[in-house]
Nucleic acid binder design. Structure first.
Lengths: 226, 226
DNA sequence: CCAAAAGTGTTTGCTCTACACCCATGG
DNA sequence: CCATGGGTGTAGAGCAAACACTTTTGG
């Protein structure tokens, strides 16, 4: 069943890196230096090395582009259409990553990227390969997970106000939420704790909260047939 | 960024094939003919060919083992730990498949499998590679999807009674469901239609229903923060 | 004192859950 | 006529949604 000498597809990882920047959900893209799709934008990614796991490869690519090692990282889907890369067979394992808004970010791209830039999810440029499809799927998964898990906190700094969480949710879900219901729910869920610190800005200062690492925030989906 | 001459992992697909047999959820396994793990049981699978997509490869493997081409097939996860295959680097894309209970089944295994057998999900034998982990993840996903989608119908014959659906759900979820609530929900969901046919067995004959192909049965998960 | 954002409860409707008896058929 | 599984409705509890005003600070 398993043999050793046969033609093999190349195997790469691509990472959809999300972050909140300028009050928008943005994706990190790099501009392609060479052919094909020269000058077009693409997801950070590269080939999987023989001695690293897929997750390590994704983490390494992210580190190379952003300087960040610690982030929420989740495998998304594996794309393997024979025609997805014009140069030959390349199968890619896509990951999606969430970066905290206050994380340090190394501006200049990694070794092999000519340029790295953040793009708002709603105004993406033309993308190389099937990367547009990958990003849209990642965005769909993010919205979906937001509804039944606490993944949204991965995008926030370690301390945040209730209004900031709500804005995050509104931004990603693209809908307005009721302030009182939102606060009641999130507090009842027991996944955040209030600190004794406040943040001053315009208007009345807001209490700062932080995410409870030990929180079990998975919520059972409503069953079709319970 | 992309180059062409570099060592590449081998790429395979493995398929977790579920079916209801003898009123139990069962998985199709093959017995390994050669080393490593000779004589142990494993998932049907094999290498991806250069000219086929991943889904085509999974479908082909399923066809070789079961004789079935038409089935529900969904990509599950890609496993790529460098040490998962003792012979070298093999990355595998796992799929899960659901086969209707009344589907014709070619008993003898395919070309390279010495033997193929159905095992109840609760009494699996020792498994080669990381296949136990893969099956458990597939089972978890199946249970999960059952709760918010109509995927359960993929396991049923084209016509079925309400009791049969309920038994299917109870079997997979491993819990007893209330008959009246179950029936009300499934009928209100509008994903099945009654026929004018009945099935006689012991006791009062039961009305037969069939699945509406055009049904939109995804149910919004209960939101943590709506 | 005014602008800006933070913070706070209650009512109403709907959905989920629990629960028990009669019906139709075959032997 | 009896055993077997099929089929049916309702009341109570808990959850989700809608909704507006007061509080605190900085300028």
């Amino acid at each position: 069943m398993y043999t050793y000498s046969h033609p093999r597809p190349a195997l790469s990882v691509d990472v959809v890196i999300f972050s909140l920047r300028d009050s928008q959900l943005q994706v990190l893209l790099i501009q392609r230096a060479g052919e094909p799709f020269q000058g077009m934008w693409a997801l950070p990614g590269g080939f999987v090395r023989m001695d690293e796991s897929l997750e390590e490869a994704a983490s390494r690519e992210m580190q190379e582009e952003t300087g960040l090692q610690e982030a929420y990282l989740e495998q998304l889907y594996t794309y393997g259409e024979p025609s997805r890369d014009p140069r030959g067979r390349v199968v890619t394992v896509a990951y999606f990553a969430l970066i905290q808004a206050d994380a340090v970010f190394r501006k200049e791209g990694g070794s092999d990227a000519s340029q790295a830039l953040w793009y708002p999810i709603n105004t993406l440029p033309d993308l190389a390969f099937d990367h547009k499809e990958i990003i849209h799927y990642a965005y769909r998964r993010l919205r979906y997970k937001l509804e039944y898990s606490a993944v949204g906190f991965e995008l926030l700094p370690t301390e945040f106000t209730l209004s900031e969480i709500q804005q995050t949710y509104e931004m990603i879900l693209r809908e307005k939420l009721d302030k009182r219901n939102f606060r009641r729910r999130i507090l009842q869920a027991g996944i955040i704790e209030s600190t004794d610190r406040m943040r001053s800005g315009e208007g009345r200062p807001a209490r700062l909260y932080h995410y409870r690492e030990d929180a079990v925030a998975e919520v059972k989906a409503r069953r079709l047939f319970p």
